[in-house]
């Protein structure tokens, strides 16, 4: 392996690593606010990419109808509360209209991309409402099993909605720059840029806005937050929507690099998830660094021996778990 290849692999690794970083952040956000380990996040990656692909092909994306069905179902579940119904139906109705118009007119790609992210993001709180909310007092493990089941349902629905073909979406930029000896693709820069902007935006939100503080409060002390008038349910729905949106954006970022099918999301999501576990399911910065490491290790492992790459990436978990074991002293009550 010469230096050029190493630099190329490093660039690839950091690019995918940045995408995993976004996913790790989404996972932590959902976990800390709701205790749900968001296994289906990877499916939201696939849904985001496939929704855009289907819109660019001139179709009304099937995800839109799924969103509407889920919106009606969750409106029915809370029919007693006018606010609940309008929260469930309002955004879904708006985005349905906007998407229908945009597809009919063949609007700009970036607008269609934004709509794809929006549709997918709105789907996530519906999933929370239908699958997780009835079990919000259940044990962490029960929630984990439900998360796994939701993943299965989403993969099955993905096949029904999108069919078995893989899809690519256009790169954010086809430009290419030369820096010293290395070619840097414009898309890689876009990925890095999105990642930095999003992390900065989240940081600002968590530290400077009321909503961000409320989210942090419900994560660190749910009971205390509720006593201060922060609605746990609303925070959970917002966390899911944010994670769903982040995942969809990750889908748009990754689909120009690797073609995506209805079932490709899971393995992508798992990488973000390894990073989150390495961060002890608690630390955003550690998870972020771990995500970049996972991306780079994966790139080099695939070059060395593509068959074993997946196993090697998962092996990163072992030292992380050992470290966590050594650090924990007390027995945690589940």
């Amino acid at each position: 392996m010469d230096v050029t290849i190493a630099e190329l692999l490093l660039q690839d690794g950091l690019t995918t690593g940045a995408i995993y970083l976004l996913l790790a952040i989404g996972l932590l956000l959902v976990f800390l606010v709701t205790r749900v380990i968001f296994i289906p996040q990877g499916d939201f990656v696939a849904y985001g990419a496939l929704t855009l692909a289907s819109m660019l092909a001139g179709h009304v994306p099937a995800t839109l109808w799924l969103l509407d069905v889920c919106a009606v179902a969750s409106a029915l579940l809370q029919w007693r509360s006018w606010r609940g119904v309008s929260w469930a139906l309002g955004p879904a109705l708006l985005i349905t209209l906007a998407t229908l118009v945009a597809v009919r007119l063949g609007a700009w790609v970036w607008l269609q991309g934004a709509l794809a992210v929006g549709i997918t993001a709105l789907l996530a709180p519906m999933v929370y409402r239908l699958a997780f909310r009835p079990l919000r007092h259940a044990s962490l493990l029960t929630l984990l099993v439900v998360a796994m089941a939701v993943h299965f349902v989403m993969v099955g629905l993905g096949l029904v909605l999108f069919g078995p073909e893989t899809q690519r979406t256009p790169a954010f930029s086809n430009a290419s720059f030369t820096w010293g000896e290395v070619d840097i693709s414009g898309h890689s820069l876009w990925v890095a840029g999105c990642c930095v902007v999003l992390v900065a935006a989240l940081w600002w939100m968590f530290h400077a806005t009321m909503l961000g503080r409320a989210l942090r409060a419900s994560a660190s002390n749910p009971m205390g937050a509720r006593l201060m008038g922060i609605e746990g349910d609303r925070m959970a729905a917002i966390a899911f929507a944010m994670a769903g949106g982040i995942a969809a954006l990750a889908g748009l970022l990754i689909a120009p690099i690797t073609p995506i099918a209805y079932d490709s999301g899971f393995l992508i999501g798992l990488k973000g998830f390894i990073a989150a576990v390495i961060g002890g399911l608690a630390s955003y910065p550690v998870a972020a660094v771990a995500a970049l490491v996972v991306g780079v290790v994966e790139a080099f492992a695939s070059f060395w021996n593509s068959a074993y790459a997946a196993a090697i990436v998962f092996a990163l978990l072992i030292p992380a778990l050992l470290w966590l074991s050594v650090r924990t002293r007390s027995i945690e009550e589940p």
């Binding site: 962490l140 984990l144 393995l267 798992l270 998830f273 576990v277 778990l321 966590l324």
Partner: peptide, 18 residues
């Protein structure tokens, strides 16, 4: 073994895939 229960579950996901 010394971590709380969900870590075992997460490790078995990695194990099953690998």
């Amino acid at each position: 073994m010394r971590l709380s229960g969900h870590y075992l579950a997460l490790a078995t996901i990695a194990w099953g895939t690998s």
